[in-house]
Nucleic acid binder design. Structure first.
Lengths: 308, 308
DNA sequence: TTCAATTCATAGGTACTTCCTATGAATGAC
DNA sequence: GTCATTCATAGGAAGTACCTATGAATTGAA
């Protein structure tokens, strides 16, 4: 049984005439007759009563034709559905964002993307790089925003921007009056850090050339906001990315100090599976993020896309 | 787009693997890959994300597969419906019966046929031969019970039985004491008849060798039961078929008298379109009628089936 | 009765589609 | 690097659908 055969029997049922039905189907009458004979044979019943006057549906034929119409209708909808799915900027985009970027990027990003691609809502997962990596590879996520380096097999990345780190100290701290600070001036014992597993923790320690000494207990906080509060209460100093230190987050108890050159920074990028079917959606996302007013150093559009 | 292609994409969606999907579809992996590529091309979208791990549905693919499943399901039901329609003794049989047979045949016939073919209910139309002929040719009726002669192009007939005519007279009538009457003894002026259009009227006049004289007004009745009542009230005599004169219809005011040999009779037959798809239903109907306990002369099963 | 017209079916040959086996390219594990 | 696994490509064989031409059956008119 084929869709063509179903179309033929419906045409004959409508036309009550093999010849005219063949015309409408753009085939010769013998071709149509043969196809219908084949189908009748396969189904084991006569669908039409042939006579000089033309073709008339049998009782069983009525039922079969009605069902054939339903089948053809559903088959036609496959094309419709495909048509709808054809726009890569249509349909949910499942986005992962690491903890240290999400709160400072998403509010603006969601709004901007809703303007740029109104039919592509975001389904957002906030987690660590390791967790997002797993979800991305499993296909649960389509795209991830994370910090480089990140090189995994089967994954493409595109760098978006470089984000400077800054130092925050409590108001009365000895460093509070400095205009800039160089990384090796920071006292790691005074430093408040995120827990193990956050890439930002490693990047900060890396900036301070501190790889070995484990931080004393009680000197870490579970989010950047926790760290900020801890600094405000005078527990120590910390290093945050610039996007967490815009005017919106100003705090009278905290002094923000730039790093002296070379300013340590992190490179933020998009990552997606190599075979992902909607690269245009990724491109749109990248473009939208680049156009946001973030306190970062923009990169050229083509400075990304390496693969292992 | 073909049903085969839809089956292939559903198989890949289920297996998440081209090779295993091909196995399940009993085709080689390249054949399956090519078919799917062709369909993806036709639909204009990628349904699967190919990777070393296998195949994964894209967002658009999810929708398409769901629709494809519906289409395949409806297509499969075409076969189911055909299977159900395969039994010729299943489904309504649209039966026409002439007025002068219906009331005396149908009660027993409906009961007997319900026993013989419980899945074949009758849809019954009672009318004159001319009207039933039109409905039969138009396909509104499947089979008609009527009296011969009846020869129409494209119509097959099968004789069922010969039914004798009998004379009915009112109790005090001069002929009431006769054992038998010969047809030419009947006074046509005394005869009560059905209106023009009923074949029985012509058959009775034919039996009396009376072709020309129009019956006086007020000497006809619209049904056999009306005629019977008219005779009972002494308005005249009439000729009825034997099936209308069984014990069930006995009336103390009426005397029933057999014809002397040669007894005039009518031959009752089935008629159906030559191409009618359920000849077995017709055969079953004929057989059922023949087995009824009617006051008729049965014919052999194969004494019918002439055409034009 | 014969003839012409109309219907659907059959015959024979061609073109296209599907399918197979063999092979290739990309990737990742060891 | 080597091997195993994935899906894609190539080339050729088999099957299917299609076409034109013709036939058979029927019917209405000459």
């Amino acid at each position: 049984m084929t869709l063509t055969e179903l179309r033929y029997i419906v045409a004959v049922a409508d036309a009550c005439h093999f010849g005219r039905a063949a015309e409408r189907c753009h085939v010769s009458q013998p071709s149509l007759s043969a196809s219908i004979a084949k189908l009748e044979d396969e189904l084991g019943i006569k669908l039409f009563e042939r006579s000089r006057r033309g073709a008339k549906l049998t009782a069983a034929g009525e039922e079969v034709i009605a069902q054939a119409r339903r089948a053809l209708d559903e088959a036609a909808r496959v094309k419709t559905v495909a048509q709808q799915g054809r726009n890569p900027l249509k349909g949910i985009l499942r986005l992962g964002v690491i903890h240290t970027i999400a709160p400072y990027l998403l509010p603006d990003l969601v709004a901007a993307l809703h303007r740029a691609a109104p039919e592509m809502p975001l389904d957002i997962e906030e987690n660590t790089t390791a967790a997002l990596d797993g979800l991305l590879k499993a296909g649960t996520l389509d795209v991830v925003v994370l910090a480089l380096p990140y090189e995994e097999s089967g994954i493409l990345t595109q760098a978006l921007y470089d984000e400077p780190f800054k130092v925050i100290v409590p108001r009365g701290h000895p460093l509070a009056r400095r205009k800039t600070i160089s990384a090796d001036e920071l006292d790691v014992a005074d430093l408040l850090l995120l827990p193990v597993g956050h890439c930002l923790r490693d990047q900060v320690l890396d900036a301070c050339r501190e790889f070995t000494r484990p931080p004393p207990p009680g000197r870490q906080g579970n989010s950047l906001e926790t760290l900020r509060s801890m600094v405000a209460s005078g527990m120590g100093i910390s290093v945050l990315p610039a996007s967490a230190l815009t005017a919106r987050y100003a705090n009278p108890l905290i002094k923000v100090i730039d790093f002296a050159s070379p300013v340590p920074m992190r490179r933020v990028a998009l990552a997606w599976r190599k075979g992902f079917a909607r690269p245009a959606a990724v491109a749109q996302l990248a473009e939208t993020i680049r156009r946001l007013a973030l306190p970062v150093q923009r990169l050229s559009a083509d400075s990304g896309r390496p693969n292992r």
